[in-house]
């Protein structure tokens, strides 16, 4: 393809090709500080392309393709090329990765122990992880958390955090402007702005961490903590995993172990400060 770049996030080496320069330039800016293992063959390929040659210029719209494709996925305008690239990268991991159990969850770590936050979009899991990652936690990822079936450890996938709507202002108030990507206004998912994880989070991205706490956050309503049984946590995590079935028995064993060894809670919280306090409190209790 005309333009391309390579990015390593956690264990995945991406090759991203594009018919336009802009999305590649934007990616290279966001991922400038990530280790570029240039000689390593790619695990996953993403393609950003124009459906017809003239659409590179005329009302350019970016189709997302690659090793795995979602039929009927709508293209995005070129101004949202960066979002298309991120969606393409997520798609390849969600559909193609087989080495680890993939949980649609954010995660943060402290002292070698991980808190895994699993929830639908809108649950605030990304925002909570991003905010904690600006404090004394290491951000592991805002979208995917990987579980190693052999050891039961959690592995990081610290792509650039995708901040949405209100979360943009909340984070922008706390971080250096140089760590924020361009504002993508009015995307199908609302306003989006990417946050580059802190250098320590990127430097530590290959270090495995013991899961210490499983949280299922729900944004809104009174502060509440509900202990969750092993069975329910198991069911919810199979639903949050894109490759649980494909892993076969190792996936079953890893998930069984995860819910047995890790205390799980559903939490509700009215605002980010309350949510962060809940995470700190439950983490302290889990480690006692």
């Amino acid at each position: 393809m005309r333009h391309s770049t390579r990015i390593a996030v956690g264990p995945v080496q991406f090759r991203i090709g594009s018919d336009w320069r802009a999305p590649i330039a934007a990616l290279e800016k966001l991922y400038a500080a990530y280790p570029g293992e240039d000689a390593r063959p790619a695990d996953a390929t993403v393609r950003l392309f124009a459906a017809r040659p003239w659409r590179r210029w005329l009302r350019p719209s970016v189709h997302i393709g690659g090793d795995f494709v979602v039929p009927d996925a709508l293209p995005l305008p070129l101004s949202m090329g960066l979002l298309a690239a991120e969606m393409g990268m997520n798609l390849q991991v969600a559909l193609g990765w087989r080495r680890h159990m993939l949980l649609h969850a954010s995660a943060v770590a402290k002292d070698g122990c991980a808190v895994i936050l699993s929830g639908e979009s809108g649950s605030g899991k990304s925002t909570l992880a991003a905010l904690l990652g600006e404090g004394d936690w290491r951000l592991m990822g805002d979208e995917f958390t990987l579980i190693d079936p052999a050891t039961g450890d959690a592995l990081a996938f610290p792509r650039a955090v995708s901040l949405k709507n209100e979360a943009i202002g909340e984070i922008a108030a706390r971080v250096d402007a140089g760590r924020l990507g361009p504002l993508l206004a009015g995307t199908p998912k609302g306003d989006i702005r990417h946050l580059i994880p802190r250098a320590d989070a990127v430097a530590a991205m290959h270090e495995p961490v013991r899961p210490a706490l499983l949280l299922f956050p729900r944004f809104g309503g009174e502060t509440a903590i509900e202990p969750m049984g092993e069975g329910e946590a198991f069911v919810r995590l199979t639903e949050a995993s894109t490759n649980y079935i494909a892993l076969g028995e190792p996936g079953f064993a890893a998930l069984t172990r995860l819910v047995r060894e890790t205390p799980a809670f559903g939490i509700s919280y009215p605002d980010s400060a309350a949510g962060m306090a809940l995470v700190e409190q439950l983490f302290a209790e889990a480690r006692r």
Binding site: G229, E230, G231, E232, F234, V235, T238, Y244, I245, G248, E249, F252, T256, V259, R260
Partner: peptide, 22 residues
């Protein structure tokens, strides 16, 4: 079969089908 009790549920993994039954 691999049968693992998980609290009130029992998870049954069937090695022939690769399916998990709760």
């Amino acid at each position: 079969l691999r049968i693992e009790p998980l609290g009130e549920l029992t998870a049954v993994f069937d090695r022939r089908s690769m399916q998990t039954h709760l």
